[in-house]
Design a protein around this nucleic acid. Structure first.
Lengths: 331, 331
DNA sequence: TTGTATGCGTTATCAC
DNA sequence: GTGATAACGCATACAA
């Protein structure tokens, strides 16, 4: 990556304008000339400098993505869907993880300066900074959050699914519930799930915090919870916390769902393989990422310039962990 | 991100050279002048264009990473270690996934054109292309592979660990083994593990292919294997395949390790939580990524210009899945 | 159909 | 201490 368009032009005996035209097919070039150019390109092994192209075109041909962490399948799946579509659209993906990072704002601003648009997970970017980015004209898609002025938002449906899940559990006859996975930040996915189940179960459900949304944290919190008072059913914020809860129950010698029912959220691959198989709400993670990439592309190319707020549908997946069912449902 | 250095200069009543100097602290600037500049910068909300800076500096301040997929904790962990250190060193990370991608070579070349150096996982980049990249002068760190001319390579130790694992299993008295996870490409991690165990177990162990290194594939392959002839111990290429094998055994009503022993590799978080807890070989995934980032930085900055081939040490982690032990080992 | 010249936004080398 | 100005590598109006 050292040879420039000038050397190609000289070797082919043409001007750099002609080389550029021949290579990108913009403007007319005589067949014979084109051949000379291509030959020179071949011989010199020329590849246009990305920097030069970007500077001249006024675009990076790259998208950014900001996430808190990459732990667990959720972020990974969304990221893969995002990268795949971005790549299809000719855009690279620049990543930024914020967890445990100092000077997050600077990092995010720097990132914003090297891409045409940004995908942001939940609260990985502080709200004031989001507002500032919007003000600066940065194309933004925010995932798993309430609608935000100036940016696209994209999420899976939570409230109705949460209600459906709660009603299903109530149908099992349970009367004492716990919601594991604290709804720390309002307006995000977990908060919506919490509100959804509570709107059905009311005072019969109590929120219990986990430090993070991981198997480990779910395990710790569930163990403490189950030792203390024992709810009949634990509604977890996500599958990983739920897997932790299953392990905690086992360690305490409790049967699931016999002694305590457990449910998750997301339907990650491990949910189906858990013992017992996990009742959960399926969320289209891959598609979330893919849609985000397309939405960002629309914003960047200017096909659309008014923000859009999309909600993807989810599906209640009933398996064994929430209790016995007359006719076995397999998924 | 629209205001240029010229507007700042005009507003501050100085030249662009002075603005640049004031901002990056290169060259002398009168205290009073600096203040004027900073004020103008503040008022206009100026941020130097990444493109302009990169073009002038002749560097991208970005690293690339090419992986086949992001499925499972292994790639994710390495990636996080890599991104963390790269970020510390002031470099962004541009990702590229090759799985199911057409025109992989073009994508990789494009990526190479927008970064200062590349981290490559195993065989995510075809060997001929690696050679070409080396020829083009691209700084390269290849992970989990045999040493390669012109590039750094970095991996965890495999052979000795595999031998230790095999000897441990032999110590249990087993006589018929299977290696689950076909060593498809020679010179990579799984191939080394296979050779290592075979060097100890000889004809007593047989290789069985999995389509990929995932729980699903491990499950399928293990089920077929266990239905057919039943080895006393299954040595899996990695923890995910091993988790699949555990599930397969359970589905077939087999006890682990009573009916069949199972071992993994990597020591991902789920290994400790598996039932039974998985005997495995711990590999420092995070550190692998971190080291890769530092190595790349050395290559890019020119601190070092001869390739280095590093091997990180691993640790045999004996848990319950390989059989009963006199004194219980907990990890 | 082709070439010239300018712009893109910086940094850095010189003069002053 | 400061200011012109030449790179950096390309795309593209505009002229020819």
């Amino acid at each position: 990556m050292d040879v420039t368009i000038y050397e190609v032009a000289k070797r082919a005996g043409v001007s750099i304008a002609t080389v550029s035209r021949a290579l990108r097919g913009t403007g007319p070039v005589a067949a014979k000339t084109r051949e000379k150019v291509l030959k020179a390109v071949e011989e010199l092994n020329f590849t246009p400098s990305r920097l030069g192209v970007s500077l001249a075109e006024g675009r990076h041909a790259a998208n950014g993505v900001v996430f808190p962490d990459l732990a667990g399948p959720y972020y990974t799946e969304v990221l893969l869907g995002y990268e795949e579509v971005a790549s299809e659209l000719g855009r690279s993906v620049v990543i930024l993880s914020t967890k445990g990072r100092t000077k997050v704002n600077d990092l995010i601003k720097d990132l914003a300066g090297r891409v045409d648009g940004l995908l942001v997970f939940g609260h990985a970017v502080p709200d004031p900074l989001i507002a500032e980015l919007v003000r600066l004209g940065v194309r933004l898609v925010v995932i798993s959050r309430d609608p935000l002025p100036g940016a696209d938002t994209l999420r899976s449906e939570n409230t109705a699914s949460a209600r459906a899940l709660a009603e299903h559990l109530a149908g099992h006859g349970y009367e004492h519930f716990a919601f594991l996975g604290a709804p720390l930040t309002s307006g995000d996915d977990v908060d919506e799930r919490w509100r959804g189940v509570r709107s059905v179960l009311g005072g019969a459900i109590e929120a219990v915090a986990t430090r993070e949304y991981t198997v480990e944290c779910g395990f710790d919190a569930a163990k403490a919870l189950l030792k203390d008072k024992r709810p009949e059913a634990i509604v977890c914020s996500d599958d990983e916390v739920a897997l932790g809860a299953l392990l905690a129950a086992e360690e305490l010698g409790l049967d699931v769902p016999g002694d305590v029912a457990v449910t998750g959220w997301d339907d990650i691959m491990a949910a189906r393989h858990a013992r017992p198989a996990l009742t959960t709400v399926r969320q289209p993670m891959r598609e979330l990422g893919a849609r985000a990439a397309r939405a960002l592309d629309e914003l960047i190319t200017g096909v659309r310039d008014t923000p859009r707020h999309l909600i993807l549908t989810t599906e209640l997946v009933v398996r064994a962990s929430c209790g016995p069912h007359p006719q076995e449902v397999s998924t």
